[in-house]
Design a protein around this nucleic acid. Structure first.
Lengths: 207, 207
DNA sequence: TGGTGTGAAGTGGTTCACAGCA
DNA sequence: TGCTGTGAACCACTTCACACCA
């Protein structure tokens, strides 16, 4: 299953399709047409078909797609066969909320550990994972072959921590710090800036 | 300042530029070239110029852009003159974290109130805003002319709550519920699905 | 007949390259 | 000379439209 040239946006939608398919599968559906799946996923049928066409013939003309096979195929394309280790850095309000968020585990990601520098946080009881001091981070990443990190530190520490992560071998960062990170080309940043999302949203609203 | 045909992505970047300009302004910079601002914002200089060209001549050839004027212009384009009222629905882990997030207020959004159905949450002390029962939501939206909502309820309530919001007059929803919302065309949804972001990210990482 | 697979046309955004002005 | 403003080329999807097959 070669991962060349499937566009970013298609990958994102594949994630969505897989959720929808899971629901259909749970409801005992065995086949689904591009029309009905597209409707559930809120995309155009032609787009769905184009997306699926990236990995060969899967559907049957006149009938539709076999739900289970399609689900399995998408999951394998997304590399979701194995549990992926992740760490979280910065256990503030947001970081803490994300640690409690069960969506990650449900989707195949395991938050192995969190990191912070605040002694109060390090001693805190009742968090879902152990919180370690930042200075242990590099060793931890190496030892556990961590490739992805969730970054929730305050803006002013963002770049500094990102540098540490990158030099320890992290290749993908989900960045919640409201700052722009400079990283080498092989590292991928996905930025989630809540204030900016809200600001863009507000622009498109009629007053 | 007409808001037709400035593309979504440009608007998103304008938000970013405004942050960068604010920093430059605080540092006493009076002019900035497309080159250096682009570097700070992590975009190509030509893209920056194209983005700014949407609202006329602002720069001086040979010199660059006047920082303060540019900042003011972008803010006015983004409609950031006034404080925008927002509500938050669903005070779970994530909702609670977002209530404590000070980035919203700093960027000109005021979370007027939160809503939930859980009696325990309604009685909770120490939250930054009052939490009201869902049944008061529609009236509250109308009375306060709320146009935007942050949705953090569990997936299975997402559509139901969205319907309420829309019929009460909300036109933009920042959706953190891991579900796909069907809404009328005039309503804008921005989806933030953490598990999907992580899943897409992982695809592009070399194993 | 119903619904997939796909070339071809369309769309929206990005980047180039350079004319033109301070 | 330096740097903006911008047509034109380019690129990455999206959508259409229809051939083709169970």
């Amino acid at each position: 299953m070669d991962k060349v040239d499937i566009p970013k946006k298609t990958i994102y939608r594949l994630s969505i399709y897989s959720r929808c398919l899971l629901r259909l599968h749970e409801n005992g559906m065995e086949t689904v047409s591009s029309n009905s799946l597209a409707q559930v996923a809120n995309v155009k049928p032609s787009q769905l078909r184009k997306d699926l066409a990236h990995f060969g013939q899967l559907g049957t003309r006149g009938l539709g797609y076999p739900v289970e096979l399609l689900l399995k195929t998408i999951r394998s394309v997304l590399g979701r066969a194995t549990l992926q280790p992740v760490i979280l850095v910065g256990v503030g309000n947001l970081g803490r909320a994300l640690l409690h968020y069960d969506g990650f585990k449900k989707e195949g990601f395991e938050v192995l550990s969190a990191f912070d520098i605040d002694a109060k946080v390090l001693e805190e009881q009742g968090l879902p994972v152990q919180v370690r001091h930042d200075r242990e981070m590099t060793a931890f990443i190496t030892k556990n072959s961590v490739r992805m990190a969730i970054l929730c530190v305050p803006a002013k520490y963002g770049q500094e921590v990102a540098n540490e992560l990158v030099s320890a071998g992290v290749q993908g960062i989900l960045n919640f710090s409201p700052t722009i990170l400079k990283v080498p080309d092989h590292v991928i940043i996905t930025r989630v800036d809540l204030a900016i999302e809200l600001e863009s949203l507000s622009y498109f609203i009629d007053q």
